[in-house]
């Protein structure tokens, strides 16, 4: 059963802020991204390596830098402790599955190290879909 999105947001924010790999190079990790899971959308706002805000009910004009969009089934695959091949990262899933990366990709590239580590926290926290 999927986590309640508000509970998920608390767990994900705590997991991010406690993560030592992000913490080791967190100082300038600042960006805002949308995760579109089909039945649930989330906007995460990172400031200087810490979770500033997680918006669990984004409205049409709420701003973000870049977005990851995929089906709920794909997000559930991302959240397995050991994902199956091609669901094991944003590059693999965008090359071989239904993940779309949209928006200002330059901002994603500027923050790629920490964003990649943070994305993989889904394997510990799960997803709300």
């Amino acid at each position: 059963m999927a986590l309640n999105v508000r509970d998920w947001a608390v767990k994900f924010g705590e997991a991010t802020d406690r993560d030592p790999t992000i913490g080791a190079m967190a100082r300038y990790y600042t960006c805002t991204f949308l995760w579109d899971m089909g039945t649930q959308k989330i906007i995460v706002e990172m400031v200087d390596g810490k979770t500033y805000r997680i918006n669990t009910d984004p409205q049409p004009l709420d701003a973000y830098d870049f977005a990851l969009k995929a089906s709920p089934a794909t997000w559930r695959e991302f959240a397995k402790p050991i994902p199956d091949p091609m669901y094991h990262g944003i590059w693999s899933a965008s090359f071989r599955r239904d993940l779309k990366i949209e928006g200002n990709i330059l901002v994603m590239m500027q923050n790629l190290r920490n964003f990649t580590v943070q994305f993989e926290l889904l394997r510990k926290v799960g997803v709300p879909v």
């Binding site: 094991h88 990649t116 394997r123």
Partner: peptide
């Protein structure tokens, strides 16, 4: 960028 060319 090549991180998830590796197996988890």
């Amino acid at each position: 960028g090549v991180w998830d060319l590796m197996a988890p």
